[in-house]
């Protein structure tokens, strides 16, 4: 049995909030550098150069890359035998968010009620997803999600007869309609199958897959490559000013689904698709 202290969870979440907002992940930064070479539009190249410069400033000054430090999405992967000591896990996570957003000078962008809309003042509550696993692990990924890109995400319940062609069309249509708003070059998370909420969850989780890692399923890897090529033909380009780099990657997750359904969800991540992870 593994024991994790609530205070350790708080400290880890605090650190990960700041790191995720201020330090771009290496895989994305490397991809920017590749695209700087391949992008055909001179203006597009300048945009990518600016994003690299911005990432450097943010990392060196420990300032947020983007002022929209988002809703704090937290993925918890926890062994079934792990015991939390000294407090409720959810309170510990939210305290970490509170401290991270205060100490990191991150913007507080969360409103208490979607109808009445008063800012909570500390960016809580986080949106927390728990995954129970058999191993003795306690792993947290913090992924602050800005709404420039979140607002352009979409879900559709396709029919089985629409098949993979229907899936492709929906993904491309969603990216096309998003245009320059989600701060391209984007990362496209796609969830296919399951139920409505499972597809949405998978599309968000898919955004976390490192860009230098292939999809382990060869059929899906091929579908990802095909979608990426098609998306980059849309012409949207860096910042939407036109160009050949509209997306950096398409990441797909799938799950078993019903004989009568084909749910598809597309979660768009901005060029930074911020996240940071750590274990206890």
């Amino acid at each position: 049995m593994k024991t994790v202290k609530a205070s350790e969870i708080t400290n880890l979440v605090e650190k990960l909030c700041i790191e995720a907002c201020c330090v771009i992940t290496g895989d994305i930064e490397n991809k920017f550098k590749c695209c700087l070479e391949t992008e055909k539009s001179p203006l597009g190249k300048q945009v990518i150069g600016t994003l690299l410069e911005n990432a450097k400033i943010a990392r060196e000054e420990l300032s947020p890359m983007c002022q929209d430090t988002g809703v704090t999405v937290v993925f918890v992967k926890m062994g079934q035998n792990v015991q939390i000591e000294g407090g409720f896990i959810e309170d510990a996570i939210n305290q970490g968010v509170r401290q991270g957003y205060e100490k990191g000078y991150l913007r507080k962008s969360v409103v208490r009620s979607p109808i009445e809309r008063t800012n909570t003042g500390d960016n809580t509550p986080a949106v927390i997803h728990y995954e129970i696993v058999s191993d003795d692990v306690f792993h947290i990924t913090v992924s602050p999600k800005g709404f420039g890109s979140e607002n352009k995400s979409a879900l559709k319940m396709l029919t089985p007869s629409e098949g993979v062609e229907g899936v492709k069309k929906f993904v491309i249509d969603t990216v096309s309609a998003a245009g320059g708003n989600p701060c391209p070059p984007i990362i496209v998370g796609v969830g296919i199958g399951g139920t409505m909420e499972k597809a949405a969850y998978m599309s968000k989780k898919a955004l976390l897959r490192p860009l230098d890692e292939q999809n382990p399923d060869p059929t899906l890897a091929e579908l990802e490559a095909e979608l990426l090529t098609e998306i980059n033909k849309l012409g949207i380009g860096p910042a939407g000013f036109g160009g050949t780099t509209t997306a950096l990657a398409v990441n797909i997750l799938t799950y078993a689904t019903h004989i009568a359904g084909l749910p598809v969800s597309v979660n768009i991540g901005c060029h930074a698709t911020r996240h940071a992870e750590g274990s206890l």
Partner: peptide
């Protein structure tokens, strides 16, 4: 004018 989305630290 369009500023570059996400280049906020710069």
């Amino acid at each position: 004018f369009a500023a570059i989305g996400g280049a906020a630290a710069l």
